[in-house]
């Protein structure tokens, strides 16, 4: 009804606005990609150029790089809106705060998680990832990164009003991402070889992502409400 119409319009407006900001303000998406590339490039310098070793731990490097790239920029997710007052407008609008958080999370994932997942096979070349592992790694990142976005959104919402946010969001969020990392990497590894079928950890990863979307959205909305 009218509610639904205005809600979906407001929802799409937030998504569009965040996508436009990410595209124009230069920051969001492409910086996370560059950071991802940098981490993947740094690992061989630390480990040595042994391609056998690198290809064995390739999925782990890609997952860790993607995780860090997502965590680093997270504290800005709500902070910039808090600073310029648009968060107050969103709070005052008829759109439930949960849906607003969902819209912002969706835009964040579209500008960071999705590009990271798409870039993973390319970066996989740098760590000599076997060809049959390319698609599974990209697939696990594709279904796993939403969990990172939404668990991270809860942490970012807690730090929205902080003057000195910085490191606090990764410190809060990183321990909570352990399950995502475990199942993401083991699904990617099981595609290369191993005793576990690929689908088992992959489906659990999907379940974690779905649960994280719900819990993260509700928690982030509650945290933003406490902010005023």
């Amino acid at each position: 009804m009218t509610h639904d119409r205005s809600w979906s319009r407001a929802f799409l407006a937030i998504v569009k606005r965040d996508l436009a900001l990410a595209a124009r303000a230069g920051g969001g998406g492409e910086l996370a990609l560059v950071f991802f590339l940098t981490i993947v490039v740094l690992v061989p310098f630390a480990l040595g150029p042994d391609l056998n070793l690198l290809s064995k731990i390739g999925p782990a490097i890609l997952w860790l790089g993607a995780l860090l790239s997502m965590l680093i920029g997270l504290d800005r997710l709500f902070q910039s809106d808090e600073e310029d007052g648009s968060l107050d407008l969103i709070r005052a609008s008829a759109l439930p705060l949960e849906l607003a958080v969902l819209a912002k999370g969706l835009a964040h994932w579209l500008t960071t998680g999705l590009p990271l997942a798409l870039a993973a096979p390319l970066l996989g070349l740098l760590v000599a990832l076997p060809a049959q592992a390319m698609l599974p790694v990209a697939g696990t990142l594709l279904v796993g990164t939403p969990a990172l976005t939404f668990v991270g959104a809860a942490g970012a919402a807690l730090a929205a009003g902080l003057r000195r946010g910085g490191l606090i969001v990764p410190v809060l969020v990183a321990p909570l991402t352990v399950p995502v990392l475990i199942f993401g990497v083991s699904a990617a590894n099981s595609a290369v070889g191993g005793t576990i079928p690929f689908l088992t950890p992959f489906l659990i990863l999907c379940a974690i992502s779905l649960a994280a979307i719900v819990v993260g959205t509700v928690a982030a909305a509650a945290a933003l409400r406490q902010g005023d």
Binding site: V151, L158, L176, V178, F183, I204, A211, A219
Partner: peptide, 28 residues
């Protein structure tokens, strides 16, 4: 007051997560 409410949300998110972490680490 604000810190209390923020930490409360974090604690509850962590509480939901602890069994999942336990399960996933067991699996690991």
């Amino acid at each position: 007051g604000r810190a209390g409410r923020a930490v409360a949300i974090l604690t509850l998110v962590g509480f939901v997560n602890v069994p999942i972490i336990k399960f996933s680490v067991d699996w690991w």
